[in-house]
Simulated scan of single mutants.
Amino acid sequence: MGRWTDRLTGLGIELPRVVTPVASYVPAVRTGSHVYTAGQVPMVEGQLAGAGKVGSGVSLPDAQRHARTCALNALAAVDSLVGLDSIERVVKVVGFVASAEGFTEQPAVVNGASELLGEVFGDAGQHARSAVGVAELPLGAPVEVELIVEVA
């Protein structure tokens, strides 16, 4: 155990199993001192936790919960590659939000991921970020999140 796994335990959070890729890619890749995750959708125990467009069928609070799930799935991918406790800091979060026409609260949706990272990593969880509205996401997911982390 180490500082981040202990923090997760203290928060009552358990990392999920790594989501099996749905196409030709791997969940995470390390290059130098950085790990890049593939985009993660809100899969829970092998099933998509929700589908649809945010602002029409998916509420903002539900979308934020989905973004949190996506971030947990991304952390599981990092953990499987290098171990969670090797993370020095979260560098960047990219969030994609399947958005209904006129929906403009993508940053609020991706806060679901950012706030989780802050809970787990404290100051080391402060990151640069993009929150992008898109027409569609894989499997009909409402949110997709990818991470870049610096590791020891």
Rank of each mutant, 00 (worst) to 15 (best):
R17F: 08
A135K: 12
A23D: 07
G57K: 04
P61T: 10
A77T: 08
L139M: 15
N111L: 15
A124C: 07
Q64I: 02
E119W: 06
L72G: 02
S24A: 14
Y25A: 06
S33I: 05
N73K: 06
V143L: 02
G125Q: 10
V110N: 02
V18R: 02
V29L: 13
P142T: 00
Q47C: 03
A23C: 04
S33E: 12
V134F: 04
E146W: 07
S80V: 07
D123V: 09
F96R: 15
D62L: 07
S56N: 08
S59G: 14
T104S: 15
V26G: 08
V149W: 03
Y36H: 15
A124E: 10
H127E: 14
P16C: 09
G122C: 11
Q126F: 14
G133L: 01
T37V: 09
E14D: 14
A124R: 11
D6K: 13
V35T: 02
G39D: 09
E101V: 12
G140M: 01
D85F: 08
V149R: 05
L84A: 01
P107M: 13
E88Y: 10
P107V: 12
F103H: 03
Y25F: 15
P107Q: 13
V44P: 01
M1N: 12
I148Q: 13
L116T: 00
L75T: 01
A135Q: 14
V151R: 05
V22N: 07
Q47M: 11
R30H: 11
M1F: 09
G50Q: 02
P61K: 10
V94A: 11
H66I: 00
T20Y: 09
A152N: 13
E45K: 12
A113V: 09
S130G: 07
Y36Q: 14
V29R: 14
V149N: 06
H127Q: 15
A100P: 00
P16Q: 08
V151Q: 06
R30S: 10
G32N: 11
G102F: 03
Y36V: 11
A131I: 06
A98M: 03
T69E: 10
A100D: 00
P138I: 00
V41M: 15
A76Y: 04
G125H: 09
G46W: 10
R65D: 09
E115H: 11
K53R: 15
A63G: 07
V29S: 08
S33F: 06
L8E: 11
A63T: 03
D6C: 05
G46A: 12
L75W: 02
A28T: 06
L8I: 12
E115V: 12
N73T: 05
M43G: 03
Q106G: 04
S59R: 05
C70G: 02
S114L: 14
Q64P: 01
K53Y: 00
E14P: 05
N111G: 13
A152R: 14
G46D: 13
A76W: 04
F103G: 02
R65I: 06
L117I: 01
L117G: 03
L139D: 11
C70P: 01
D62Y: 01
V90L: 15
T9V: 13
V18L: 04
A100C: 04
G39T: 06
P142F: 00
A141G: 08
S59I: 06
E45S: 13
L137S: 00
